[in-house]
Amino acid sequence: MSQANRKPRFKWHIVVFLAPAVLVYTAIMIFPLFNTLRLALFSEVDQVRVFTGLDNFRTLFGDPRWSESFWNALGNNFWFFVIHMVVQNPIGILLAAILSHPRLRFATLYRSAIFVPTILSFVIIGFAWKLILSPIWGIAPDMLDAIGLKFLYAPWLGKEEYALTTLALVSVWQFVGIPMMLIYAALLSIPEEVLEAGEIDGVTGASAFWKIKLPLILPSIGIISILTFVGNFNAFDLIYAAQGALAGPDYSTDILGTFMYRTFFGFQLQLGDPHMGSAIATAMFGIILIGVCIYLFGIQTRMRRYQF
């Protein structure tokens, strides 16, 4: 009885253990984030920073020029994301399924080879692919020529209608290793007994994949989708490395990241506007937040989990 009445002692060790992470995370993530949100509410008039409330957002969504750039960037961003979802993730799952096949030889070699581009720098990827696809020095036209398909070649990176899709596919090539690794790990953790039980019931081969393995790796696919979403809506590097800050041709590869960079830091004769840039960054933050929330509350909570 007396024990239950005693006030529980404050658990200092929890604070001590949490402190380093909290401090570092606050200093390099939370503070800059909120400062950016704050900066979006200001504007500079005659060298003086003045509070303007939501004026920047009114300009961003109300002014026909700003809103056109914004919706163009958002639309391109969605297309970039869609390509990743329909190309990168299915291929990643397929590769993982093949790799986890017990009779595949050289599995480690393939695994490493496919994963290597992921750790390469964007600058190298951007530069290498620009050279590969170049109409002048590139090997793409020659290779197509060698198999008699030269007519399929176009200067993809320079055409409004293909440039964004091309870059999205380059990005898919670079990052396909990540879903592959995650799914591969998930597939390996499926116990043999489950598969054997299925076999006894006559579920083998492809139908074992569709009926047993796929439902079991669904949570991993969910995680991959949300990682892809966040990664794509924060993307910037590849477009910048391959097409520059103007995201040419004619803004057809402009995504939110490059739009924000151009506005925030300025470009050539255009001077940077940190306040407008922050407004765009805030909009990006909002979009990602909404996307993550839809996933967390709409999908994650309804997903069934299996315990072995």
Partner: peptide, 16 residues
């Protein structure tokens, strides 16, 4: 302009 000039960069032109 050369074939595929749409994707030709500034250094490409200098080199050509």
């Amino acid at each position: 302009l050369g074939d595929g000039y749409e994707a030709q960069t500034y250094p490409d032109s200098q080199n050509i």
